[in-house]
């Protein structure tokens, strides 16, 4: 793969001990992932699996204790804040909670202007770019002078997406960007993500606990379990015919919206769990 955007090799993240005499907490162990240009890597796992930590490590918000994170061919695993400022042009983020990811006392216009100003864009140019962004994420232009609390969850997430897009980044880390949203809103926001990728060729590292969401948006999927990646491959394979026992359990656990098909799935899930228990016994 020649035009690799992100290349994570043997990454470990260890949080220092929380108190005297306590062991440091190893959140991630030996992570290897790659994201190509205009590609979406879905990262799926349950709470505590380390999927969010991986996203945060790439953004420089979690301590890297071993391994490397290469972004556009440059090692950024220990980038300083000054390096980050240069990096932010190409590496951006959309967080899960649209309620706390926007400063409640700043107007939408100011929120969107912030990344542009850091990069030294002039006022007129910033204004033009912000108007373009609002249009791109489907927000009315009068949103500029309003505060985040005047918007619904879905609209706030649009603002967060616009902020991430402001500098035309190469990679956006999306940390559960749709899980706080209603079903209909979720579908619209996912469509927006896809449309933006089509238009701009941006890559996504898309973190989610929802296998359906990940299947919908990702080209490739990595499954995380207890701080490690247990399975990785093309979306169609991992999310439909998984090989790792955990992914199989995850797939079977998600209920389908039809009573009869769900009943069938329940039976299949029961068989799967029994079979896995038997295998575990014969191994142990």
């Amino acid at each position: 793969m020649s035009n690799l955007v992100l290349d994570v090799k043997n990454l470990d993240v260890t949080y220092p001990a929380a108190g005297f005499g306590k062991k440091p907490f190893k959140a991630l162990h030996n992570i290897n992932i790659q994201v190509g240009q205009a590609e979406t890597l879905g990262l799926v796992g349950e709470s505590g699996s380390g999927k969010t930590t991986l996203g945060r490590a790439i953004l420089g918000l979690a301590p890297v204790s071993a391994g490397t994170i290469e972004f556009l061919g440059k090692d950024i695993s220990h980038a300083t804040r000054k390096d980050r400022r240069a990096l932010s042009r190409d590496l951006q983020v959309v967080f899960q909670d649209p309620y706390t990811s926007l400063n409640p006392s700043m107007e939408i216009g100011q929120i969107l202007a912030e990344p542009l100003q850091i990069q030294g864009l002039g006022e007129a140019e910033a204004k033009r770019r912000i108007a373009e962004l609002l249009d791109q994420v489907g927000l009315p232009s009068d949103a500029l002078n309003r505060l985040p609390r005047e918007f619904s969850g879905g609209q706030r997430q649009r603002v967060a997406i616009a902020r991430a897009l402001a500098l035309s980044p190469k990679l956006i880390v999306c940390d559960e960007p749709v899980s706080a949203l209603d079903l209909t809103t979720q579908a619209r926001i996912l469509d927006l993500f896809l449309q933006i990728q089509k238009d701009t060729g941006v890559s996504y590292l898309f973190v989610s606990h929802d296998l359906d969401v990940v299947r919908h948006i990702s080209h490739r999927v990595a499954v995380m379990y207890k701080g490690e990646i247990v399975e990785q491959g093309p979306s169609a394979q991992v999310t439909v015919n998984p090989t790792h026992p955990y992914t199989q359990r995850l797939l079977m656990a998600s209920p389908v919206p039809d009573p009869d098909r769900q009943e069938k799935r329940r039976v299949e899930r029961k068989h799967l769990l029994e079979q896995q228990a038997r295998e575990l016994q014969s191994q142990g």
């Binding site: 035009n3 190509g36 240009q37 205009a38 590609e39 919908h216 080209h219 919206p257």
Partner: peptide
């Protein structure tokens, strides 16, 4: 989203 065809627009490199 369950059972829907994934909407990923497989572009270029991917």
């Amino acid at each position: 989203l369950e059972g829907k065809t994934p909407m990923t627009m497989l572009t270029g490199n991917a």
